[in-house]
Design a binder for these strands. Structure first.
Lengths: 137, 137
DNA sequence: AGTGTAATGTTATAATATTACATTTTGAAT
DNA sequence: ATTCAAAATGTAATATTATAACATTACACT
């Protein structure tokens, strides 16, 4: 068995727990403040846990926001690449999965004689809820 | 006439100048150190200039690197959206342009009942040069 | 000249992330 | 069981990136 939640360390479990219970992406220092009761005292402890969780694909970073989000997809293959829909109104974030972005980007890269390895994609706009609300403004 | 280089302010011209003369993306504080001779003394002056330059599409930000790059494309429409190829070996950055990413992403968003507004895409891999070098390792 | 708006200058500080180094835990090989 | 190396941890300090707050200046338009 590879890297399931079972063989995470204490700090890693704590950080992952906070993220999984959050309805939205969290910043590193917000995570820190949330778990100082649980024995984590320094930013470094959070960043180290995040690094590991990102490495094994349990957590993704949203670059444009310096935020971190737990991945809800069992066995997410987005260990390196990430693709998000980010609502500009309510900050809700959805991960794009099971699509063919990889092959599409590979082709785009090829045209520029560039060898695709991974990507990060962040699409901004309105989520379903906010879209509906917006119609009446 | 809209926002051409002509009606930029002194600070904005200075910052844009540095970026245009750089062969690679620059960080805000690197820009600052480079132009302290020219009367710009504080980070804020750099960030304000960058904000404006980004707003008018003369400069783009590379989110994953906290770096800024001058746009080489006359009348670049990427005022908001950006798409980059980033070499993991040499840090060379190329902007993807004139492609149909917009419509592709709109469709992807639609599938999730999400209204596309803009995006940032960063593709990591090997640029042409580094790809060639790599073959002999 | 007076007014409004944008840009500027300056200081301080907030927010995000890493270095350095000493210590402890873990777990596999003997 | 003991040893050993690798991984993880703890702690303090610091580096890096970005913004807040507020006073001042420049300039176009009346």
């Amino acid at each position: 068995m590879a890297s399931t939640s079972e063989n995470l360390t204490k700090n890693q479990k704590t950080v992952l727990g906070v993220l999984e219970n959050s309805s939205e992406p969290m910043k590193a220092y917000t995570i820190l403040y949330d778990i100082q009761k649980k024995g984590i005292k320094s930013p470094l402890q959070v960043y180290r846990a995040l690094d590991k969780l990102i490495e094994i694909g349990k957590v993704h970073k949203i670059e444009s926001r310096n935020s971190y989000v737990a991945c809800k997809h069992e066995g997410c293959n987005a260990k390196t690449s990430t693709s998000f829909l980010i609502c500009e109104k309510c900050d809700n974030v959805t991960e794009l999965i099971g699509n063919n972005l990889f092959s599409y980007f590979s082709k785009q890269a090829d045209k520029n004689n560039f060898k695709y390895n991974k990507h990060c994609l962040e699409i901004f706009g309105l989520c379903e809820n906010c879209k509906l609300k917006n119609q009446f403004i």
